[in-house]
């Protein structure tokens, strides 16, 4: 259960946004993809989930690339978008059924997990509603439930905290933690740096399409030369440094 990104060069057009991105997300690891708006977080994620094709480099899950076996690759991956994406014409219950169907999950087992999650996120009484009409936070919770019933090997979570209330944020982090313990590899992009510092095991700092630094918090501190620096200090220090260099 490893996600490997090797020498990724890519973007939306011929001019690459990402320049030589390499990192790994291993089993039982929560990796934070950190960067300012426009640093290339979403582009990296779009490459991983297979919406964009790399111009150079490779992305593999357990040594399988999207082109080797699309079904196997996608079957190992669950994705949670930053802006909730829902079907206008499907109820909450049907969203879950569809996810079960699409991933070929065991229905009973998946529903057991789903019911637990629906309880945690206070959605249990809304099964027959159209979630497309929910508030942003509630839609976000629907995305969480849909992603986590898959029991995927690799989770790609794009900026999950915006729109969630503190209770839901805590519950999501608990959920992420238990999936980590189960052995999943989790990549999470965010710019809520304080939360990232607290929960992520490893950090990939993106800036202007390049990896500025990567490592655990301790490694980053050593690199930065300050043993008590926070992730925010390190990131801001490094990127502002970068600006003067370029």
């Amino acid at each position: 259960m490893t996600l490997k990104v090797q020498g990724l060069v890519g973007g939306y057009s011929k001019i690459p946004v990402l320049k030589d991105i390499s990192f790994e997300v291993n089993s039982g690891q929560l990796v934070g993809l950190i960067g300012l708006n426009g640093a290339g977080k979403s582009t990296t994620i779009n490459h991983i989930i297979g919406l964009l094709e790399p111009q150079k480099g490779a992305i593999k899950i357990d040594d399988i690339g999207l082109k080797d076996d699309a079904k196997a690759y996608k079957g190992k991956l669950a994705y949670m978008p930053e802006m909730p994406v829902l079907y206008q014409e499907l109820t909450l219950k049907e969203h879950l059924e569809l996810t079960i169907m699409a991933y070929g999950l065991d229905s009973n087992k998946a529903w057991r997990i789903a019911n637990k999650l629906l309880g945690i996120f206070r959605l249990a009484n809304k099964l027959d509603w159209f979630p497309a009409n929910f508030s942003k936070g509630m839609r976000q919770k629907v995305m969480i439930v849909c992603a986590f019933i898959t029991r995927a090997d690799v989770y790609v979570i794009d900026e999950p905290f915006l729109g969630l209330d503190p209770l839901a944020t805590r519950d999501l982090l608990t959920l992420v933690d238990s999936e980590k313990k189960r052995g999943s590899a989790i990549l999470m992009s965010t710019h809520v740096l304080s939360t990232a510092q607290e929960y992520c095991d490893y950090f990939v700092l993106l800036h202007q399409g390049r990896i500025k630094a990567k490592g655990s918090l301790q490694e980053l501190r050593t690199l930065y030369g300050n043993d008590s620096a926070s992730l925010t200090d390190i990131y801001l220090g490094m990127t502002q440094d970068g600006k003067s260099n370029e």
């Binding site: 297979g50 919406l51 699309a70 196997a72 996608k74 994705y79 994406v85 079907y87």
Partner: peptide, 14 residues
């Protein structure tokens, strides 16, 4: 109808 829904591309369905 579903072409603009990202999950269509993410599901492991051919």
């Amino acid at each position: 109808t579903f072409d603009d829904n990202v999950f269509i591309y993410i599901y492991p369905v051919s």
